Amino acid sequence: MSESEAFASLTSNTGALKDKTVFITGASRGIGRAIALKCAANGANIVIAAKSAEPHPKLPGTIFSVAEEVEALGGKALPLQVDVREEDQVADAMSQAAEKFGGIDAVINNAGAINLTSVENTPPKRYDLMQSINSRAVYLTAHLAIPYLKQSKLGHIISLSPPLNLQPKWLGPCAPYALSKFGMTILSVGLAEELRDAGVSVTTLWPRTLVATAAIEFAVGSREMFEQSRKPMIMADAAFEILQTQNNELTGQQLIDEELLRERGVTDFTEYAHNPEKADQLAVDLFLEP
């Protein structure tokens, strides 16, 4: 099944997120876009909060193209150009979202920066970029969204970050990036406790295998690595399972996409593979043990 066919088939779903508002950072492409379309097909209003307002020569997708896809699936879209490092921009985006849709029910921290370099080989500007777009953005979006989320009957924060794994083999090669991603997870664990009594669920989500995104193509390796990767749709399906889970059942958990989907009854993962013929040759993602 092609990507377009897969997204088109989503319209047969049940509308589990009908009229709920999902605020997704970095939603102009990749995993963020896939989550946006999955939620839209299930009735959600989608806030596409990303920097990409103009087409990029190498990276397809903008906030406006995703908005068109969301609306084609029956969802409502609010495309907003947002830099998650800027407090005023994030606050204004949330205010606009709440005004347009009547509130915010979920925040998904998908925007990210990656550079797999050691301390010696990481320039200070790149270090600061990763900390601000990764861990600091989790703090900032939560800080600004909590008043809205407390008013919601859904109330979710999902951050795309790995389970804590402090083995030296993961820290030595890329400690600056690891710090930024584990920082997201530590903040999420703390937020889960902070917001437990308010009924707001906070989780992290990480892929079991590489996912075919621009980060893999341009920052980690090359497009050839797509042959060892899954499609972004697997993360979208896992995020949807989290969002439709009620009563804080998952709050505080550090979740892996494949494990969660298996728990929810998925047994065949072949179609998630970028190349289904190589579904048994997938590479395990960073920070996870084989």
Score class of each variant (00 low, 15 high):
S12C: 10
S12P: 04
N13D: 13
N13Q: 15
N13M: 10
N13E: 14
N13S: 14
N13R: 15
N13Y: 08
T14S: 15
T14F: 13
T14E: 15
T14W: 11
G15P: 11
G15D: 10
G15A: 11
G15V: 07
A16Y: 00
A16N: 02
A16L: 15
A16C: 10
A16S: 13
L17R: 09
L17W: 09
L17Y: 09
L17N: 05
L17G: 11
K18L: 14
D19F: 10
D19M: 11
D19K: 15
D19W: 12
D19G: 14
K20R: 15
K20W: 01
K20N: 08
K20L: 09
T21A: 11
T21L: 12
T21E: 11
T21M: 13
T21F: 12
T21I: 12
V22A: 05
V22W: 09
V22C: 06
V22R: 06
V22N: 04
F23P: 13
F23W: 10
F23Y: 14
F23T: 08
F23G: 11
I24A: 03
I24C: 05
I24Y: 00
T25G: 13
T25I: 06
T25E: 12
G26S: 02
G26P: 01
G26Y: 01
A27N: 09
A27R: 14
S28P: 12
S28E: 05
R29L: 02
R29M: 06
R29G: 04
R29A: 09
R29Q: 14
R29D: 08
G30P: 09
G30S: 07
I31G: 03
I31P: 04
I31V: 14
I31F: 05
I31S: 01
I31Q: 12
G32T: 07
G32E: 07
G32L: 06
G32V: 08
G32H: 07
G32C: 07
R33G: 01
R33F: 00
R33S: 01
A34R: 13
I35A: 06
I35Y: 02
A36C: 09
A36E: 00
A36Q: 01
L37W: 01
K38P: 01
K38M: 10
K38H: 05
K38L: 00
K38N: 07
K38V: 05
K38F: 00
K38T: 06
C39V: 08
C39R: 08
A40D: 02
A40K: 12
A40C: 08
A40W: 06
A40Q: 06
A41K: 07
A41I: 07
N42A: 04
N42W: 05
N42M: 03
N42G: 03
G43L: 02
G43P: 05
G43W: 06
A44N: 02
A44S: 05
A44G: 02
A44R: 00
A44H: 02
A44M: 02
A44P: 04
N45E: 00
N45W: 01
N45F: 02
N45K: 07
I46D: 04
I46Q: 04
I46F: 03
V47D: 02
V47N: 04
V47H: 06
V47C: 02
